[in-house]
Design a protein around this nucleic acid. Structure first.
Lengths: 145, 145
DNA sequence: CCACTATATTTGTCACACTAATTATTGTTA
DNA sequence: TAACAATAATTAGTGTGACAAATATAGTGG
């Protein structure tokens, strides 16, 4: 690899990630979904693994704990989730989807899949495999001891 | 492409972009570089194209104008750049590297190249070409009209 | 020249990332 | 059991990103 690349990839990566998020948020706003993209990622994870602790939820979603605390605050304020005492550990809560939260997910899931699909025009399965492999390699290369 | 992918790529992309930035910032902090990763990207662009207006600088760096205003504020406070009147247009400034700014860039450029290189362990030129092509395709697919 | 529109920058607000510090609780070990 | 370290969650502070609105100046068409 020549040196000039080492500066380009971070720019491309950040720029693309930002656009992916911005595009999705724009569509969320147009459709008046009433949540942010990051809030959606939490809801969706809860639909798969119900009643996770905040720490577990943060790990699954790739967020840090302070960020997760605040996202959960916002979701609680919107009555989409609630904090429930964790009987096994009084330091922690489990985050529980409300009925309203489940309904929100079921209502939006189809729309959001379509929004996400838009990125893959002109790309195929092989491209996805490449992207996944390269991104995961970079991710592993940069672990902080 | 099957549907499950359409939700995975955004997670991978954001996660990787975040780690790239976090890793670089961590190394910046360890080395007491005294700037953030985003501030560095502005300085480096100014080293290539001197005295850009804030609007031009924002475009080159892929930042929006309010964000750029604030980053320039921080760089001014650190005496690394200064705002100079644009004789051609009194609405705008040109951002000018101070001597101190130039010295900072020259001092850090080598270290930062090395930090950036770390991401490419176990990857080659072809991987870079794939990544560039795929990210740029996604970027173009998601333009907001 | 005047009104109108467009542009460059700034400010404000909300959301999120990262770090460090704090609080409450748990686990461990002397 | 009492001191100690580890952990879950929170809070605070700074930086950045997106969007909207405000201000000042520039350009344009009548």
């Amino acid at each position: 690899m020549q040196t000039e690349h080492y500066n380009a990839y971070s720019f491309l990566l950040e720029r693309t990630a930002r656009r992916v998020k911005q595009y999705a948020q724009y569509q969320f706003n147009c459709g008046e979904f009433g949540i942010t993209v990051d809030q959606w990622s939490i809801l969706k994870k809860l639909r798969q693994h119900t009643d996770l602790s905040q720490k577990e939820l943060a790990e699954h979603c790739g967020k840090d704990q302070p960020t997760l605390t605040r996202i959960v605050d916002l979701l609680v304020r919107k009555n989409l989730v609630e904090r429930r005492a964790n009987p096994a550990d009084r330091r922690s809560f489990v985050v529980h989807l409300t009925l309203q939260g489940k309904q929100k997910i079921d209502t939006l899931a189809g729309n959001i899949s379509e929004i996400r699909m838009q990125a893959w025009k002109n790309l195929d399965q092989t491209d996805f495999e490449h992207l996944k492999r390269i991104l995961n390699t970079i991710y592993d290369n940069l672990e902080i001891k």
